[in-house]
């Protein structure tokens, strides 16, 4: 019942709010939700706190953009190429880090992401620190570009990606993969004793996560029409994917979506009411909120809903 209602609301949203700004917020929420859902596969279900997902986001954004700019390749094909590259990167990242546990792993991920960022910043061919402007094509679904003030086509595109990701996670949750992911999160040695090969399943989790993050990367590039290391590859971008998943509820299907709605909602609301971005008041509130949640509501919004439900019954 609830998913149906959610779907109806999500589909009707741009019809009800036809102004560019609310539609833009809708796009932001779906895009961030997609990244958080992807992060949740490794971080939430498998328990591997990977803080380097910008690698995949960046590969997605840069691959399609550079292919389009330099070779005129259609962004959809660029997106496909990006996901393949991202999954290869996930294998490499996984193989070099899967022996590491706990903080060693987290820091190794941060290191990887910073290395990739440094390489892009210093390579002129990749746009360097300046970034890449995506060439304008005719507006059409085939070209993955929609101009003008109506953001609805972008909204429906990203909503479709998000729905696919949620469906995949829903299926994974109920299958061998999902059980093995959670077993690895709970106790890696215990899982091994039951015949689970942690390296293999962590790798699968990484690849799934990389795939969706990469798709979000291509979408971001096609939506904003400009990418640079600061907006695509910086550490805070990695952190925010993780924060949304944790805030919403780790290892739950809908948690990352709720987290994205809450964080984007709050940051947009503070930005609009408190004015200019340079002031960073939105980020201050966001930071505070994260602390408050970590201390008082570590199971996130989903946990809060669960408690409310229990109280009603």
């Amino acid at each position: 019942m609830l998913p149906v209602a959610a779907a109806v609301i999500a589909l009707a949203y741009p019809k009800v709010f036809s102004l560019p700004y609310p539609q833009h917020v809708g796009v932001l929420i779906c895009m961030n939700a997609l990244m958080a859902v992807a992060w949740n596969i490794t971080g939430g279900y498998t328990g591997q706190v990977a803080l380097g997902n910008t690698v995949f986001f960046g590969i997605g954004a840069y691959t399609s953009s550079l292919l389009l700019r330099d070779f005129g390749v259609n962004p959809w094909i660029g997106m496909l190429a990006g996901t393949i590259l991202s999954m290869i990167a996930a294998v490499v990242l996984g193989y070099t880090t899967f022996r590491l546990r706990g903080y060693y792993f987290t820091i190794a991920c941060i290191a990887m992401a910073e290395i990739v960022s440094a390489i892009v910043v210093n390579t002129r061919r990749l746009g360097g620190a300046v970034g890449v402007t995506i060439p304008i094509r005719d507006a059409s679904l085939l070209n993955f570009q929609f101009h003008g003030t109506n953001k609805a086509p972008y909204y429906y595109t990203i909503l479709t990606f998000l729905a696919v990701a949620l469906f995949v996670v829903y299926r994974v949750e109920r299958s061998k993969l999902g059980y093995y992911f959670r077993a690895i999160r709970e106790d890696e040695d215990g899982a091994r004793a039951l015949g689970v090969n942690p390296a293999r399943y962590k790798l699968i989790a990484f690849m799934l996560s990389a795939l969706f993050t990469s798709v979000a990367g291509t979408f971001y590039a096609q939506y904003v029409m400009f990418i640079d290391p600061a907006s695509v590859l910086a550490q805070p971008v990695s952190v925010s994917m993780c924060l949304m998943a944790v805030l919403g509820g780790l290892g739950t299907l809908w948690g990352p979506v709720l987290g994205a709605m809450a964080l984007i909602g709050i940051s947009e609301a503070t930005r609009v009411t408190l004015g200019g971005t340079g002031q960073a008041v939105d980020l201050m509130i966001y930071g505070l909120l994260v602390i408050v949640f970590a201390v008082f509501q570590p199971t996130g919004l989903m946990g809060m809903l669960g408690k409310l439900k229990a109280r009603k019954e």
């Binding site: 059980y179 093995y180 959670r182 077993a183 999160r185 709970e186 106790d187 040695d189 215990g190 899982a191 004793a193 039951l194 689970v196």
Partner: peptide, 14 residues
């Protein structure tokens, strides 16, 4: 070393 955050059934499912 039970999987503390999972139900009894889910533990055995693994």
């Amino acid at each position: 070393r039970v999987f503390k955050g999972m139900t009894v059934l889910d533990n055995v499912m693994v």
